[in-house]
Structure formats: structure tokens, C-alpha cells
Amino acid sequence: AVSDRLIGRKGVVMEAISPQNSGLVKVDGETWRATSGTVLDVGEEVSVKAIEGVKLVVEKLE
């Protein structure tokens, strides 16, 4: 699937994400809805860990 190529890629949070609410991330110039187990603020760099349906699962870049 086209989304599989995104796993491991870096992105930037465009709309804040929390465990309760999905947000938006931009990866390779495309905007995706994303979820995370932690709070991520706009502008934070993330990496794509998995894909669930049409949402990316991301975590903060260390």
C-alpha cells in the first residue's frame, strides 16, 4: 500500500495530537490524520510507527 512507505519517515505536527484526540502531521509534503500515545504540540518532529486504517501512529522524535 502507498501508506506503507511512510513507516519510519519523519514528519511535523500540524495540529496538536493527544491520546484522546487525533491531529494532523505532514510527512513528505502530504498531510495525514495521526494518533499518538502522548501529547504532541504543533511544530514537534515525529516519526511514523504504524498505520491504522487511514491514520498514522506517530511518536516524538528523540
Score class of each variant (00 low, 15 high):
L24Q: 11
V2A: 11
S47I: 14
K60Q: 06
E30P: 03
D28Q: 09
T31C: 06
E30Q: 05
R33W: 15
N21M: 13
V42R: 11
E44N: 10
K60M: 05
V2W: 03
G8C: 04
E59P: 00
V57I: 11
E52I: 09
V25R: 00
I51W: 06
V39P: 07
A16R: 14
S22G: 09
E15R: 05
V46D: 00
D41V: 10
E45N: 13
L24A: 10
L24E: 07
G29M: 09
V12N: 08
E44I: 14
A50F: 07
E52M: 08
K49T: 12
I51L: 08
E44G: 04
A16C: 07
M14W: 11
L6M: 08
E15I: 06
S3K: 06
D4Y: 02
K60F: 04
V2D: 15
L56H: 01
V42I: 13
G53C: 04
G29P: 05
V39T: 15
E52T: 09
V48Q: 00
G8R: 03
V42M: 07
S18Y: 11
K49V: 14
V12T: 12
G53N: 06
R33L: 15
G37D: 13
L6I: 08
W32F: 10
G37H: 15
S18G: 12
E15M: 09
N21A: 12
E15V: 08
D28T: 07
V25C: 05
K55S: 14
G37C: 07
K60G: 07
K10I: 10
V58N: 01
V46K: 00
V2T: 14
S47A: 11
V13P: 00
P19E: 07
S22I: 12
V46T: 02
I7S: 03
E59I: 09
L40H: 11
I17T: 04
I7Q: 04
L40P: 00
D4F: 02
I51R: 06
K26N: 13
G8V: 02
E30R: 04
N21V: 14
I51P: 01
A1T: 14
R5K: 14
V58R: 00
G53V: 04
K26Q: 12
E15N: 07
R33Q: 15
S47H: 14
A1P: 13
V42L: 12
V48G: 01
E45Q: 11
A16W: 09
T31V: 12
K10P: 13
L24S: 14
V12M: 10
Q20G: 14
T38C: 05
I51Y: 06
G11D: 01
V25K: 00
L61S: 07
A16T: 14
G11Y: 00
V57L: 10
V54T: 14
R33C: 07
G11L: 02
G23R: 01
L56V: 09
L61G: 07
L40N: 03
L6C: 03
K55V: 14
D41Y: 12
D4P: 08
R9A: 10
R5M: 11
G23L: 03
V54S: 12
A50S: 09
S22K: 05
T35I: 10
D28Y: 06
V27H: 01
V46A: 05
G8E: 03
I51N: 04
V27P: 00
T38I: 13
P19S: 09
T35P: 01
V27S: 02
A34T: 03
M14V: 14
S3D: 15
A16D: 08
V25M: 02
D4N: 08
V42A: 08
G53Y: 04
S3M: 08
S36W: 02
E45H: 14
A34W: 01
K49G: 04
G29V: 07
E52S: 10
G37E: 10
V58K: 00
S18Q: 11
W32V: 05
